[in-house]
C-alpha cells in the first residue's frame, strides 16, 4: 500500500445515506490505492458498499440522501472530493470513466449509439463533428463490433446485451481515461458473452495502459483479471492482498467462507458447500464490533466489542480480523 506515486488513493472514505428508517452506513472508512496500469478487484456481496465507494470516486453518490462523511480521494495531485461540480465533470469521462452492470439503462434510448460516443468526444476532446463521427466508428471497431459504420446509426435497443456493453466500453475509452471503473460489467450477460467482454477489457487494458477497478460479486472473475483484490463486507474492507496471495492464503474468515461456499468447476467435486449461516447485517443497525461476528465460526468475545483494525502484519496482506482462520487462534 506504499507505492511511490499511486494514480488513485482512497483514504478512510465513509459514505452514509439518510433514509426514513435511519442512517444507512454504506461505506465505513475504506482505504486503497491503485497505480497506473494496475488492476484492482473489489469483491463482495450485495450491500457491501463496493458500488457506493466507486460512485464516490466519480462524485456520483446520489444527493441529498447520500453523503460522503469523511476521507480523501486523491487522484494525481487533487482531492476529488474538494473539486467543484464543473471541475469534476472534466475529470469524469476524460480521466476516469465508468461502466455499469446494466448497459440498457446507461445508454440513452432515443439517440443512436454513435451519437452518444460523439458527444463525449466533442465535449472532452473538442473534436469537430465529422472527426468525432469517424472516431466513434473507429472506437466501435476497437471493441469488436462488426460493421461499425453501420452500427453507429443503431439505437441501443437494436443491439444485443453483449453489444450494448461493448458500446458502453467504447464510450468509456473514447477519451483514453487513466482509470476505468467497471461495476459488475458482465453480471447481466451470459457466460460466453462474459468471456468476450472480459477478454476485450483485458486487451484494452494492455493496449491503452489504463488502470482498471473491477467491481464484482464473483471471486473467480478477479482471479484471472486483477493484480490485487480488496474483499468488502458491510462497508468495510476486510482483506486486501495481491491476487495470488489472496487465493493461496485467504486470511479473513469471510473470504475463507466465501471461497468454500462456491462449488468448483474443475478438479474434485465439492461434497458439501460451506454454510455461512444467517445473512449480511442490516446496514441501518450494524452489530457492535466486527460486522461478520454473528456469522463467523471463529468468533470470540473480543470480536463483539470493537471493529478490528485492517492490520498489515508486514506481509503486504492486511486483514481486519484478530483470529487466524487456519488455526482458530488469536494472531
Amino acid at each position: 500500500m506504499t507505492s511511490a506515486d499511486p494514480l488513485l488513493r482512497v483514504n478512510d472514505l465513509a459514505v452514509e445515506f439518510q433514509t426514513d428508517e435511519g442512517t444507512v452506513h454504506a461505506v465505513n472508512g475504506i482505504s486503497y490505492e491503485i497505480s497506473a496500469g494496475e488492476s484492482l478487484g473489489i469483491v463482495g456481496e450485495s450491500g457491501c458498499g463496493k458500488s457506493v465507494s466507486s460512485l464516490a470516486i466519480m462524485g456520483l453518490v446520489p444527493r441529498p440522501a447520500g453523503r460522503v462523511t469523511q476521507g480523501e480521494i486523491t487522484f494525481g495531485e487533487r482531492d476529488l472530493l474538494k473539486l467543484s461540480t464543473h471541475e469534476m465533470r472534466l475529470v469524469r469521462g476524460q480521466q476516469i470513466a465508468m461502466i455499469f452492470q446494466d448497459p440498457v439503462s446507461s445508454l440513452n434510448p432515443v439517440y443512436p449509439v454513435g451519437r452518444q460516443i460523439e458527444e463525449a468526444l466533442r465535449l472532452h476532446l473538442k473534436m469537430s463533428r465529422p472527426d468525432a463521427r469517424a472516431r466513434a466508428a473507429e472506437l466501435l471497431d476497437t471493441v469488436g463490433i462488426p460493421a461499425p459504420e453501420e452500427r453507429v446509426k443503431d439505437y441501443p435497443h437494436q443491439l444485443s446485451g453483449g453489444m450494448q456493453q461493448r458500446a458502453m466500453i467504447a464510450m468509456a475509452i473514447s477519451c483514453q481515461p487513466d482509470l476505468l471503473i467497471a461495476d459488475e460489467p458482465t453480471t447481466a450477460l451470459d457466460v460466453t458473452i462474459q468471456a468476450q467482454v472480459i477478454e476485450l477489457l483485458a486487451g484494452l487494458r494492455r493496449e491503452l495502459g489504463m488502470a482498471v477497478i473491477l467491481i464484482t460479486h464473483e471471486l473467480a472473475l478477479v482471479a484471472g483479471f486483477c493484480d490485487r483484490v480488496a474483499v468488502m463486507y458491510a462497508g468495510y474492507i476486510v482483506e486486501y492482498a495481491p491476487v495470488r496471495e489472496l487465493f493461496a492464503r485467504p486470511q479473513h474468515p469471510y473470504t475463507v467462507g466465501l471461497m468454500k461456499a462456491v462449488p468448483t468447476l474443475i478438479g474434485e467435486r465439492t461434497e458439501q458447500l460451506a454454510n455461512i449461516p444467517g445473512s449480511p447485517p442490516d446496514l441501518l443497525d450494524l452489530p457492535h464490533g466486527c460486522p461478520y461476528a454473528p456469522r463467523c465460526p471463529f468468533v470470540r468475545d473480543e470480536c463483539r466489542v470493537e471493529v478490528p483494525d485492517l492490520r498489515d502484519r508486514g506481509d503486504g496482506h492486511p486483514v481486519r480480523c484478530i483470529v487466524d482462520p487456519t488455526t482458530g487462534d488469536l494472531r
Partner: peptide, 22 residues
Amino acid sequence: SAVPVADPEIETRRKRIILPGD
C-alpha cells in the same frame, strides 16, 4: 472454458474458447 475459476494459477494457464458473435 468461459467460466472463470477461482485460482489465479489456473486462470493464467487456461486457454479460453471465445465464441464469435451472439
